[in-house]
Design a protein around this nucleic acid. Sequence first.
DNA 1: GTGGTCTAGACCACT
DNA 2: GTGGTCTAGACCACG
Lengths: 128, 128, 128, 128
Amino acid sequence: MFNINIMSDKPIYEQIIDSIKELSLKHILKPDDKLPSVRQMASMLSVNPNTVSKAYQELERQKIIYTVRGRGTFMSAYSERPIDYERLEKALEGLRNICVELVHLGYDKNKIYEEIDKIQLGIEGGIK
Amino acid sequence: MFNINIMSDKPIYEQIIDSIKELSLKHILKPDDKLPSVRQMASMLSVNPNTVSKAYQELERQKIIYTVRGRGTFMSAYSERPIDYERLEKALEGLRNICVELVHLGYDKNKIYEEIDKIQLGIEGGIK
Amino acid sequence: MFNINIMSDKPIYEQIIDSIKELSLKHILKPDDKLPSVRQMASMLSVNPNTVSKAYQELERQKIIYTVRGRGTFMSAYSERPIDYERLEKALEGLRNICVELVHLGYDKNKIYEEIDKIQLGIEGGIK
Amino acid sequence: MFNINIMSDKPIYEQIIDSIKELSLKHILKPDDKLPSVRQMASMLSVNPNTVSKAYQELERQKIIYTVRGRGTFMSAYSERPIDYERLEKALEGLRNICVELVHLGYDKNKIYEEIDKIQLGIEGGIK
DNA sequence: GTGGTCTAGACCACT
DNA sequence: GTGGTCTAGACCACG
């Protein structure tokens, strides 16, 4: 479910964020589902609670989740989540760099398309 | 030519690396073309020579460029650049993450394809 | 433990790399052992932290060590270290040159063998 | 005969030195054989005459060759060549490092011995 | 002229 | 605390 790789170059808190986003996209985490508490999550993943906390804070900032004092943390409704143009810009920049890298590694446009097809983004049911 | 953004979260030396890779893909930098010297590039970009040097060394490690002592730094032949499966693996992983992110931000598969088309990778003349 | 000779023609960062490789071969540094932090090592050896950092980064690139962000740097498992055929090629070329040199300096094959025996590579317990 | 690799990390002048030493070891260059002039050698190898000159100067310093004004440069008699302990020390240090590297790359002592056997140092007819 | 190495000291993100 | 990045400025070997 959560594939955290402590040796990755990607910060652990970002890995947690991305994992939760991915579970959401795959409808494994649905609106108003309860997330594990910071401490539970931390021991599940064998990471420092601070790290989980940082991930949750960032997810809350992005309106992906919300917290209810004394009750816990929950997934937001899809409609709650605004388009974050800054993040979009960064993501497109990242896409651009990855494609340059892939072409350098011998890929052409069609092979890139094939890879994207493989990803199975669950777009059909998609987020609106 | 070189758009270096000192405020970006991406390290400057990586920006230089990516810029050179991109110029190569667009056939603006061709095999055996001479790159600006470390010092020239540094003053062009208003960065420290060490930073440029780090970028050049990494590019050389990746066989994108080669250096001739006392003469300068040059673009490698395309055929010199072997496929690095480890880098490929990481790039595909990155592609996957970016796509998940983009769908999260409201993109669907077709819009992603459109973005990739925009990049204009100079794939037509193709590598190799 | 670490014999760094600042007057040597060999770069300090390479001396550090070689020292760590040697300590590994002698099983003084074992998998998952923690290395001194960049700063500790730097003050131990009376060199600049950047120099140690460069050595550690190269060792990481070679999969001899791995770093865990915020925690430190550790020896890799032997099995993590893939055979790098390019480095092997270079090393064999180097061996060839050294032997030619040694013969030139009056050594014969048996004396070279003796020298290699002296090195005590800890091959008995062997890698892998 | 002379394999000069302009892209190698080894300085060109050292490559020339090693080539001449190797030709000597293989008795292709015998005592009192005439070497090409600096200019001839430079154009043969497509390198800067200064570079050849530097190689010849170093070889002369090591008593491997001698120059006769107006006549040219010649190989010394084997007996002329003193054992240079400083160089010997460096060579042994180099041997040690190469062996450590090779063991790191999966070699054991016997495989190293095999490699040395392959080199065919022409030791039988040997020097001295 | 070129790139490679090193120092001194700084700031940053991550844990 | 950790490693990663960057600047400023220096010295060196090579061609």
